[in-house]
Computed example of a mutant assay.
Amino acid sequence: MAEPVLTARELVTRAVAIPSVSGEEAEVAAYLTAWMSAHGFRAHVDGAGNAVGERGHGALTVVLLGHIDTVPGEIPVRVEGGVLYGRGSVDAKGSFCAFVAAVAALPEAALKGARFVCVGATEEEAPSSRGARYAMQQYRPDLVLIGEPSGWAGLTLGYKGRLVAKVQVEKDNFHTAGEGTSAADDLAEAWFRVRAWAAAQGANGAFETVQATIQSLSGRTDGLSQVAEATFGLRLPPRVPPAAAEAALRERLRDLPARLTFTGHETAVRHPKDNVLTRALRVAIREQGGTPVFKVKTGTSDMNVVAERWPVPTVAYGPGDSALDHTPDEHLDLAEYDRAVAVLTAALTRLALGS
């Protein structure tokens, strides 16, 4: 028996109820592709495990790239007072389901004017960004929407870059009454230098500063040697490329007995605020009674990954409060989700019709 037609709310509720920690997205991808196939999409799971659905056949190609993986941490899935609780409700199954529901609702005239490709990407919450890196080799879009929570009236234009430094110090063990520094002392000195370098970059506002944090810190000894290890995370503004930050830190730490490993090289991105995509979204938000708000984020997203290969108008959009990302209280107001679907449906129709 064919699956009954589901509402947009049922779509997101069922998707959130399927666990999909990064690397374990197969079940939710199967559910989403089945839903899309039942609602007029040409749908499949691609080589990276992404849930992909296409509608329309016009000359304009719009890629709606969201992600369907989550960070760990089980939150009992429930709807209370019109609010959906569950891991991924905000970050970011809510956004991707809003994309899918909006494209499913498009009128036939819009489908004649454009091709809409919804990609529910895997491993966005992992350093690999596997799904986005695969997708960006498959399509050449004219316009791109990234599925991330912005609030239904918010349009996110940019994300900071990222660099992760792993620092390890290993030294022979010695009595603490003796002269010299311990492995932990040298590791602490490395952190002080990293923090001082970040502060020296100046600039006003969180988006323009270099933010440095300690992500992990540990030390151990077996009686013969000492090992101290740390992971430092850097959030980088557009004017500080990851390669430049790595070179600067290697120079500042070169006299310390530390082994350095750098990962997570993501370049910051910021798109223009006035183009055909932002105009369509702004009109649609106003039609729903909202006031459009432009935003930039201090985190990273798949926007960072695809920006260089897809140099086209791009906006991150989706319902929900990004302050709830990764928290134990992650939840999505379903009335806001409904408004986001309405905004997307109207904006995509306007784009396809060229109006």
Rank of each mutant, 00 (worst) to 15 (best):
P292G: 03
T300F: 13
T300A: 05
M303E: 09
T314R: 02
W310K: 00
A307T: 10
G318P: 03
P311C: 09
P328R: 06
A316N: 02
A323P: 02
A323G: 09
L324Q: 08
W310N: 01
P292K: 07
V306S: 01
A316G: 01
S322K: 04
T298G: 04
V296F: 10
V315T: 05
V296S: 04
T298E: 08
K297D: 05
D329F: 11
L324T: 07
S301Q: 02
A316I: 03
T327F: 12
N304G: 04
P319V: 06
D329A: 04
P292C: 03
P292L: 09
V293K: 10
G318L: 06
V312H: 06
V306Y: 02
K297A: 07
A316Y: 13
T291K: 10
D329H: 11
V293R: 14
E330R: 06
A323W: 11
V315C: 02
R309H: 14
G318F: 07
P311S: 07
P319T: 07
V296T: 15
A307Q: 06
G318T: 09
P311M: 10
K297P: 03
G290H: 15
S322T: 09
S301T: 14
V306P: 00
D321Q: 09
P313W: 09
F294G: 00
P328K: 02
H326D: 10
E330V: 14
G320V: 04
G318D: 10
L324F: 11
S301M: 06
H326T: 10
T300R: 00
D321T: 10
R309T: 12
G299H: 02
G320S: 05
Y317T: 00
S322I: 14
Y317W: 01
V306C: 01
P319R: 07
T291P: 03
T291W: 12
N304L: 07
E308I: 13
V296I: 11
V305P: 01
H326R: 04
P292H: 10
P328E: 12
H326A: 03
T291L: 11
G320W: 13
T327S: 09
T300D: 05
P292V: 13
H326W: 14
D302T: 07
P292I: 15
D302Q: 05
V315L: 01
G299Q: 01
A316T: 05
Y317V: 00
V293M: 08
T314V: 05
K297N: 08
N304W: 15
